[in-house]
Design a binder for these strands. Sequence first.
DNA 1: ACCTGAACACCGTTCAAGT
DNA 2: ACCTGAACACCGTTCAAGT
Lengths: 230, 230
Amino acid sequence: MTPQTPKPRSRRERPAKPALTYDGIIATAVQLMQTEGLQRVTMRRLAQELDTGPASLYVYVRNTAELHAAILEELLGEVDLRQAKAARDWRGRLVSVLTSYTMVLFEHPTLAQSALVARPSGKNYLALVEALLALLNEGGVPDAQAAWGVDVLLQVATATAAEQSTRDRAVDAQDEHDALTAALLGASATTHPRIAALGSELLSGSPEARLEWIFRMLINGALHTPRTDD
Amino acid sequence: MTPQTPKPRSRRERPAKPALTYDGIIATAVQLMQTEGLQRVTMRRLAQELDTGPASLYVYVRNTAELHAAILEELLGEVDLRQAKAARDWRGRLVSVLTSYTMVLFEHPTLAQSALVARPSGKNYLALVEALLALLNEGGVPDAQAAWGVDVLLQVATATAAEQSTRDRAVDAQDEHDALTAALLGASATTHPRIAALGSELLSGSPEARLEWIFRMLINGALHTPRTDD
DNA sequence: ACCTGAACACCGTTCAAGT
DNA sequence: ACCTGAACACCGTTCAAGT
């Protein structure tokens, strides 16, 4: 009689060390980010979580940037693409999808920072691009303009989320914001007439109100700016 | 006869250790960035360059982010604001100034990355904002729209430069770009009809042509999108 | 092929102690 | 007030050696 249950050779107190796989590594990385933040998702810390040494991860992931890109692609699954079919005009639906994307990144602003540099190319990203292109097409934005415009829409949304990453590291960010506020409001009307004229208008509005206006102005810009390059 | 030339108490082989000052630290930091790149402008490396320990720098600079922001503010002095007075229509001059800003950041894309997070507020930055606001005003962009629009213009320029920082670390970036190209061009017409319809159009155009179109569409968007929030 | 220990070459930041 | 040595708590990545 051969034993049906192979005795697990559990090392340490963990319930059995699972074999390393790409998917397993990324899943653990996402979990680690959710519990400890992206700044803790390092090769060393992740290896520790997987009960191995950092060198082992390099069999599956080229470097830290690639690891972060993979995490982002996972996260993009949370973007609410159903907004594309809501009962609103195409502009409103476009703004909704973009806002959902921005909100997902807002939860992890440091990831947004890396997203600017390491663009993903997985299925969730493709689905997002497709949804945006469909809405632009529905709104009558000419193909050539939609092709370049979709990039700008995502770039601005990503950059806006990335900017927010300062506001996390509370204290410094506050100081920095105060410095900018003081500089803008204290500008002299002789040397900086336009800054002085606009004054607090430059800093006005909630982040939400600003973002909505920005998305609308991008859409209008894409719709009304012909490509003259070719 | 008293000696007229005081004997310098030179430590090591350096020609006399200058006293630390904020300006001296930033000047050395800028120089270090120019010779070795921003990734080498660390507290430790900079301290070494100044012939002291890293702890000494914390008397003048709160942290690494603040150091990088100070470097950026210095660099903004290189933006060519004379373009604002060139013999072209206001849109063309606006595009010129923005392009000059982008080019300055292009030389140091990792600095652009940090610029997204740690916005400067020094005199060079104020001069740039003032120049942009003056051009928007000249073009008849309503104040409320100019106030929010100037932020978007700078954000997009900064983000575009930051994106380029990948293209420096040559090999990975190429792989990543190839992955995106393959994903976009390989998209199925049934699952991703719009991506398939646009195809290579999505990746077309030189960076310069794209950027010029982007600036023009931002200007048009700002000009034609009223603020309805208040 | 996959996995690993160990090493190399670094980091930011704090703190007690000096001048 | 300014400066410092030393320490704490980390990093990414490579490589030779194992299985």
